[in-house]
Design a protein around this nucleic acid. Structure first.
Length: 558
DNA sequence: GATAGGTTGTCGCA
DNA sequence: TGCGACAACCTATC
C-alpha cells in the first residue's frame, strides 16, 4: 500500500507517496526533507540520512502558499512572505543545490505532483513553530503507518525547548535570567560538530515525479520587480559562512560586543553581524556560531556577557523559541496567558497604513520603515523604535498588526522571535516599564545628529538642514522652500503630536494594567470593551489635539 | 510580603 | 560620558 505523504502544509496530503520495499538492498533509501536547515555543515538530519543508505533523496518542496504571487497584499510577495524573503530563500536553495552537487548529489525541488518513491528512512530537522508541529505530527503518523523510520533531531536551536520547559516544572521561564540558569551550557559545547560530509549516495529512481531546478523569482510569476526594492543581503550557506568568518575575524570586536551600544542608524556598515536571516533559514548553524564565538572568547582576556554579548544574542533566540513553544496562543493577545489584555486600536487602518507605508511624518520612523521595506532588515534598535511608536508609544495600534507587517517584510522573520519582540515592545509581556518610551525625534538624533540615515532612505529630505531634519514641520517655510521639501505637500505632517500622544498612551496602559491586575489577568471581551468605552469617554471630556488636523496626501517614499 | 533586578528611555546637569 | 530624577511597571526569589 503506498502511503501518501504531504510535505507542504498541514491540511493537504497529496504531494507524493512513499512505498517501502523491504527487498531493496544494500541500505535503506533515505529522504532528506529540507525546510529550514538549508546547509551541509552541522546538519544531523542530513548526516543520518546519508549514513549507510542505499539511495538518498535530498528534497525541498515548493509550497505554493509561500511562493506564489498574491496581488492583493500591501507589498510584493506571496500570501505569507514578502518578495525579499522569497528571493533570499531561493538563493539559499541554489547554494544548497551547489553544495550538494559538490558531494555528488543534488537538490530535488518538488512541486505538488504525486509519485511513488521507495523510501525507508525519512529525515528532517525538528521544528517548534505551530505550523510545523501540526504538519510534522501528521507526517510522523503516516510514516509510522508505512513502517518508515523517522529521524527528526533538534538542531535549529542551541537547546531543546522541551528540555528547558521540563526543567522549569512544565512552564517556560518568563525572564531571560531564569532562562540562562535553566539552560546552562549546551551539552555539545565542547564537542566538535560535524561540518564536512563524505560524498553522498546517488539519487534514486524518481518515477514520474516532477523534479525541477530551483526556480527564479520570474519563474514564480514575479515580473516587475525593481532592483532598488530588493535586499542587499544574499542568501545561502556559502554567504553565511563568509559573513561569519568576516564577523569573528575581529577578535576584539567579538569580545567587546554590546548590543545596546550598536548604532541603529549605521547602514553602510551595519553595527551587527546581520547573520539573523542565515540563522532563520538555517544556512548557518546556531551551534556552529556558538562554538566559533566560544573559541574567540577563550583567547581573549575579558569579554562581555549575556544578555548584551554576541553569545547573549544567540541565547535570546533560544529564549523566545522556548517561550513560544511552551505558550498556547503565543502569537495573539486573546487566550495568551502571558499577554496583558489591552484595548488597542484594532480598527484604525489609517494610522496603521501611515506607519506601514512610511508616511507618519516622523522622518526617523519613516526612514526605518523604508529600509525595512527595501532591505528586509533594520537594526534591532530601529525595530524597537518603530514598534514602540506604533503601539504603546504613540499610535496605540494593536501589536498584532505591526507583527503582521514585520512578518511579511523581514528577511530574517522568525515566528517565535518576532512575536516575542512585539509582546516585549508593546509592554504586553516580558517588559512592563511603559513609561520608557522611545522618542521618534531624539532617539535617532543621538546616534546620527546630521541625519545621514534619513537623507539616504528619505531622499525627499536630503537637503533639509540638520537642525530640522528630525522635525521638518518646525522648519520655517523659507527653509522648507530652499530644501525643496514643503511639509504637507512633499512630505507629510506628523500624524500625531508625540508629546500628547505618548501621554495618552501611558494613561491608557496604566488603566489597562489596573484592569488586568483587578481581574487577575482573566479579562473578557466585555471587560475590554468596557475599558475602551471608559477611555473614549475620558477623551471626549477632555478634548485634546490627539491627531493633528491634516489633509491626507498621497505621499510615497521614493 | 518584601526586596532585588530588569537587553538597550528621556531629560537636564556636571 | 555618566549620573540622578522622573514615576513606577512587573517577575523571580526569598
Amino acid at each position: 500500500m503506498p502511503v501518501s505523504l504531504c510535505l507542504t502544509s498541514p491540511n493537504c496530503f497529496r504531494t507524493f507517496s512513499l512505498v517501502p520495499n523491504p527487498a531493496m538492498a544494500p541500505g535503506p533509501n533515505s529522504l532528506m526533507w529540507f525546510r529550514k536547515g538549508l546547509r551541509i555543515h552541522d546538519n544531523p538530519a542530513l548526516e543520518h540520512a546519508a549514513k549507510g543508505c542505499g539511495c538518498l533523496y535530498p528534497v525541498f518542496v515548493i509550497d505554493p502558499h509561500y511562493m506564489k504571487p498574491d496581488p492583493v497584499t500591501f507589498s510584493p510577495g506571496s500570501t505569507r512572505a514578502g518578495l525579499n524573503r522569497i528571493r533570499f530563500l531561493l538563493e539559499s536553495l541554489v547554494d544548497l543545490d551547489a553544495n550538494l552537487k559538490k558531494l555528488g548529489s543534488r537538490l530535488l525541488v518538488l512541486k505538488g505532483e504525486p509519485s511513488e518513491w521507495d523510501i525507508k528512512r525519512l529525515c528532517f530537522e525538528y521544528e517548534t513553530e505551530p505550523y510545523y508541529q501540526a504538519l510534522d505530527c501528521k507526517v510522523k503518523n503516516y510514516a509510522s503507518l508505512a513502517g518508515i523510520e523517522v529521524f527528526s533531531p533538534v538542531s535549529h536551536t542551541l537547546f531543546n525547548p522541551a528540555d528547558i520547559i521540563q526543567k522549569n516544572g512544565g512552564r517556560p521561564p518568563l525572564s531571560y535570567q531564569s532562562f540562562l540558569k535553566l539552560a546552562g551550557k549546551p551539552s555539545w559545547a565542547s564537542f566538535p560538530l560535524v561540518t564536512k560530509l563524505n560524498p553522498l549516495s546517488a539519487i534514486g529512481h524518481v518515477g514520474n515525479c516532477e523534479i525541477s531546478e530551483v526556480p527564479t523569482v520570474q519563474e514564480l510569476g514575479y515580473e516587475d520587480t525593481r532592483e532598488d526594492e530588493l535586499t542587499v543581503f544574499r542568501g545561502g550557506e556559502s554567504e553565511a559562512l563568509r559573513r561569519l568568518r568576516d564577523s569573528i575575524k575581529g577578535k576584539e570586536w567579538v569580545a567587546n560586543f554590546e548590543k545596546p551600544k550598536g548604532d541603529p542608524s549605521a547602514f553602510l556598515k551595519p553595527a551587527t553581524t546581520v547573520l539573523s536571516p542565515y540563522l532563520k533559514f538555517g544556512c548557518l548553524s546556531s551551534r556552529y556560531f556558538y562554538q566559533c564565538i566560544q573559541d574567540v572568547q577563550k583567547n581573549v582576556e575579558r569579554h562581555t556577557s549575556p544578555p548584551v554579548s554576541l553569545l547573549g544574542q544567540l541565547l535570546w533566540r533560544d529564549f523566545f523559541y522556548t517561550v513560544g513553544f511552551g505558550t498556547p496562543n503565543f502569537e495573539q493577545m486573546r487566550g495568551n496567558r502571558i499577554c496583558k489584555q489591552v484595548p488597542w486600536n484594532d480598527d484604525d487602518d489609517e494610522l496603521l497604513a501611515a506607519w506601514r507605508d512610511a508616511r507618519t511624518g516622523f522622518p526617523w520612523i519613516d526612514a526605518i520603515m523604508v529600509q525595512l521595506r527595501k532591505w528586509g532588515w533594520t537594526h534591532h534598535l530601529a525595530r524597537h523604535s518603530v514598534a514602540c511608536f506604533l503601539t504603546r508609544g504613540d499610535l496605540f495600534v494593536h501589536w498584532e498588526k505591526g507583527r503582521d507587517v514585520f512578518e511579511r517584510l523581514l528577511i530574517d522573520h522568525d515566528w517565535a522571535i518576532n512575536n516575542g519582540n512585539w509582546l516585549w515592545l508593546s509592554c504586553s509581556s516580558f517588559f512592563y516599564q511603559y513609561n520608557r518610551i522611545y522618542s521618534p525625534i531624539s532617539f535617532g538624533k543621538k546616534y546620527d545628529p546630521d541625519g545621514e540615515y534619513i537623507r539616504h532612505f528619505l531622499p525627499v529630505l536630503k537637503d533639509m538642514p540638520k537642525e530640522y531634519i528630525y522635525e521638518p514641520w518646525t522648519a520655517p517655510l523659507s527653509i522648507q522652500t530652499k530644501a525643496k521639501c514643503i511639509v504637507g505637500k512633499d512630505y507629510p505632517k506628523p500624524v500625531v503630536s508625540h508629546d500628547s500622544a505618548s501621554k495618552e498612551c501611558k494613561r491608557k496602559l496604566a488603566e489597562a494594567y489596573e484592569l488586568n491586575k483587578k481581574l487577575n489577568g482573566v479579562v473578557s471581551n466585555e471587560d475590554l470593551q468596557g475599558l475602551r468605552r471608559k477611555l473614549e469617554e475620558k477623551e471626549s471630556q477632555e478634548p485634546r489635539p490627539k491627531r493633528l488636523k491634516q489633509k491626507l496626501i498621497s505621499w510615497r517614499p521614493k
